[in-house]
Amino acid sequence: MIRIVTLDEYDPAILKALGKALYTAFAVGAEHSGSVTIPPGQVEPYDANKLLDALPKVQAFADDKVLYLTTRKLSPRKLASGEAPTAGITRYKGQRAILSSSVIKNLNPDTVKTLARYAMQEIGHAFGLHHCLDPRCAMYPSWTPSYPQGEASFCVFCRDTSEAVIRQTKS
């Protein structure tokens, strides 16, 4: 089960369309599971790692994936090899992921597929997928210029890998 938890207000149509896109991609139920507020002490643009650690827990099963969705910006991360633009971050093979929809201009039910593409990448990381070489795949690095134009779908390899992982989950 993929639980979408909002940190800000979203159009219910967008959340419904996002849940549908995630269900299509992973063949796992996806639904809006409520809202939480950002804990105090955080300043926009947020440090994605710190924010993800500070967010309140949501009731979920062990195999559930929780996607926190926010309209606010996440700051680029300074890494050993350079600065990485950050639309979202996930605990690899973990349960929690955060995604900022600020990277998408004019978010509406018609452009929700771009949001779904970003969300698929974060949930894919939570299922243990790495970045992909195929520019059409949702697991392609999200900071590339062509990424937002792509479809919300996986390449064959990533789809097979995610299906294999999901088959092995206990619940």
Partner: peptide, 23 residues
């Protein structure tokens, strides 16, 4: 590097897929 795997992978991909550039 004593960091999360997400950061480690992005550190690798920032080099392999430089931001703002197509392959």
């Amino acid at each position: 590097l004593n960091c999360t795997e997400a950061d480690a992978e992005d550190a690798l991909d920032v080099v392999l897929f430089p931001p703002g550039k197509e392959r």
